[in-house]
Amino acid sequence: MSWVIEAENLTKTFAWVPVLNQVSCQIAAGEVVGVFGPNGAGKTTFLRVLATLLRPSTGKLTLFGASPQEAHVRRRLGFLGHESFLYPDLTPIENLTFYGRAYTVPDMQTRIATVLRQVGLQQWGNTVVRTFSRGMEQRLALARVLLHEPDLLLLDEPYTGLDAQGVAILQSALAHMKAQGKTIILTTHDFAFGLELCTRALIVDRGRIAWESDGHVPSVQEFIARYHSTILHSAFRIPHS
């Protein structure tokens, strides 16, 4: 089995407070993993560690069988976080041209046109990003992530700020990536959207993986019951430091 992610006892502390606590997991190529959990559970920190934006305090992380600090590993990652990573005083085409050059995307102009069409922003290509609504900026951030066709997609609450059309665009893009055999990890509070795509579900609470689906992804109703019991259980078993 070729693992895209191998995490071994990952711990991340901020000012001596553990936000991730001995997290271990292995994720194979082509898996779509939904990470669920309450606010402050450590989902974002987990994703930022996987995206190489945070270095774990202890533990070992391997991506595509190599050190996550290698430039060729980062070339295969796409991260959509709470911030868009877009320059508000540049237009979508200028932003994507910059990222395209940084990732050395071949046939860049065609690729930019394709991703802008994919997120429904083709007519806004020359408008500065500062004038965009939150939803439009989130769509453009998705275009930025898709631009270099990453093998591992890390999405932190990607549905934030999207209207119904935006959600449909995102769902379609993710389904396409899944069909291409890309690995996707997403965090969301929307169980229905998250579970629709997942091949595996994780519940994170207090910096630990508190529950993991075994083989099949439960229905939304089943999952909600499981989620609440896991959070309750976790609250009593692991005291706050």
Binding site: R74, F85, Y87
Partner: peptide, 11 residues
């Protein structure tokens, strides 16, 4: 908009 993180993510 967190662009510095975007730069650090680039190869």
């Amino acid at each position: 908009r967190g662009c510095f993180s975007g730069l650090l993510l680039c190869p």
